[in-house]
Write a protein that binds this DNA or RNA. Structure first.
Length: 239
DNA sequence: CCCTGATTCGC
DNA sequence: GCGAATCAGG
């Protein structure tokens, strides 16, 4: 993993948004360990940890006894092949024409698309301080992720699977709405110094990848347009 | 089991 | 510096 300035920025954003390390890892296509490790090294603010670290009265943090790790695992270094899939065509849907098949699907399943498997969880509910919860998914792949939350909230995939390709087909329509985030909006100011909408276009690592860059809503990482997609009101996601 | 984040430590 | 392995709590 090469931690470019951009990926670090993304990590910071996502971390700041309160996403779980695993979620961030999925979006950046790295492991959560990498996320945690890097975040730790960067000195990012620690997030509520599941492990109890009770504090003494004087403020010192008492860490539970750490057992001397018996780490001597001659584990063969079989590097898992990380096939990169560059499926970006789906964002190019300019009209509201309903594509029943995301492009990503068509490309051999060498690597499963990083679509989050879990449904909305506590993390989503406990999210930021507003009536707005984060879509449990990431805009890393807006065409796939965002709509999923918008469409079916409680779809734990276990019960709502009467329609197999339900989510897939639904997403296209959702994406189509709200002015279809196709390519980068031609912003008047190509270069801005302030905060920029970090809604991604294309796949990270590919030449055409870039962020929206428009002025984000205050306190949010996205501009108004993309925030509307990235966030879903609790009320609205219930059917 | 699953999830989570934190830490360790070989590389 | 990086991150897999591991730990540890829920």
């Amino acid at each position: 993993m090469d931690w470019t300035d951009e990926t670090i920025a993304r990590l910071r954003e996502l971390w700041d948004q309160g996403l779980s390390t695993a979620e961030i890892g999925r979006q950046l296509e790295i492991t959560k360990n990498a996320v945690v490790g890097k975040a730790h090294r960067l000195g990012l603010p620690p997030r509520p940890s599941p492990i109890r670290s009770r504090k003494n009265a004087d403020g010192t943090t008492e860490v539970p006894r750490r057992k001397p790790p018996t780490r001597s695992k001659p584990k063969p270094k079989v590097s898992p092949e990380k096939a990169e899939d560059a499926a970006q065509g789906s964002l190019l849907d300019t009209s509201d024409a309903k594509k029943t098949e995301p492009v990503a699907q068509a490309k051999g399943d060498v690597k499963p698309a990083p679509v989050p498997a879990g449904g909305l969880k506590k993390e989503a509910v406990a999210a930021p301080a507003a009536k707005v919860v984060q879509a449990d998914v990431a805009p890393s792949r807006p065409a796939v992720a965002a709509p999923k939350a918008a469409v079916k909230a409680e779809g734990t995939a276990s019960n709502a699977n009467s329609d197999e390709d339900g989510p897939k087909r639904a997403l296209s329509s959702v994406v189509g709405h709200s002015g279809a985030p196709r390519m980068a909006p031609a912003i008047d100011r190509p270069v801005r110094r302030g905060p920029a909408c970090c809604w991604p276009f294309g796949d990270p690592g590919t030449p055409g990848f870039h962020f929206c860059g428009a002025r984000p809503l205050s306190g949010k990482p996205y501009c108004a347009e993309h925030a509307a997609i990235a966030y879903v009101k609790i009320r609205d996601r219930r059917d």
